[in-house]
């Protein structure tokens, strides 16, 4: 009951931002996925490769081509941006509004308060962006709309982008919880998260991307939990 009350509060505070993020990704996706009837294989080839009509169709290219690549690129920016906004909303705003004292004097453990924030962030990232992504993917895979189904790698990359949002969220939380000065160690949480996101995006192998994402989340999560338990408010 206590956890749910905290979770509801955090989600309600995040609501405008997660709706905005979901709408942006949905908008980009829908613009990209406009059906162009009649849509033959040759048209699709021309559309995805930019080749002129009449040129031989490269079937291998077509199988690897993805309608969702552009929305995935947008998601790679939107999800971390949402993570940043949520981190600010959950950890920074209470510092400015001085509501930490009120929040922490609940009949709940500090770990419960933090767990509610983390769960709210995870839900705020995964549910709206995930639903939009699944919807776009299902739409892109309709044989009556597009001649080739979306590659699974592109679908998976969308979820990894969402996970990167959580990396930035934790980095923002860690910086907010630090009591050091900006030009000293306070910046490290956010800097680590930003560098991790760019480093992960630059990888080509899916296994590396997954491994590095998990590693970055694990490092930041451990630090955030330790900082929150020990922080003075």
């Amino acid at each position: 009951m206590r956890f749910l009350a905290l979770l509801k509060k955090e989600l309600r505070e995040s609501l405008p931002w997660l709706l905005l993020a979901a709408l942006i990704v949905l908008g980009v996706g829908l613009v990209r996925l406009r059906p162009r009837a009649p849509f033959s294989v040759a048209d699709y080839w021309q559309y995805t490769s930019g080749m002129t009509p009449g040129e031989p169709v490269n079937v291998h290219y077509l199988v690897g081509a993805a309608q969702l690549e552009l929305p995935a690129v947008w998601l790679a920016f939107i999800a971390p941006a949402l993570g940043l906004v949520l981190g600010v909303r959950h950890f920074w705003v209470p510092l400015f509004t001085r509501t930490w004292s009120f929040l922490l004097h609940r009949s709940a453990k500090r770990s419960t308060v933090l767990a509610a924030k983390l769960a709210a962030a995870a839900i705020a990232l995964v549910v709206p962006l995930g639903l939009v992504w699944i919807s776009l993917h299902r739409y892109a895979c309709r044989p009556d709309v597009f001649p080739f189904p979306e590659p699974i790698k592109v679908f998976a990359s969308g979820w990894l982008c969402i996970a990167l949002g959580f990396v930035v969220y934790l980095g923002t939380a860690l910086s907010a919880l630090s009591t050091a000065r900006w030009y000293t160690t306070r910046i490290l949480g956010l800097a680590f998260a930003t560098l991790a996101v760019f480093f992960i995006i630059a990888q080509w192998k899916l296994t590396w991307i997954i491994t590095l994402t998990i590693l970055a989340i694990a490092i930041l999560l451990i630090q955030t939990v330790a900082a929150f338990e020990d922080r003075e408010f």
């Binding site: 509060k9 505070e13 509004t97 001085r98 509501t99 004292s101 009120f102 004097h105 609940r106 709940a108």
Partner: peptide, 28 residues
Amino acid sequence: PAVRQRIGYVTEGHRLFRWMSIAKLERF
């Protein structure tokens, strides 16, 4: 949490969640 439940605390400046209505704050 059980002990905190027995202690009321009024913070300096009465910092509450500004977006909530009194009814929502009561439920919280």
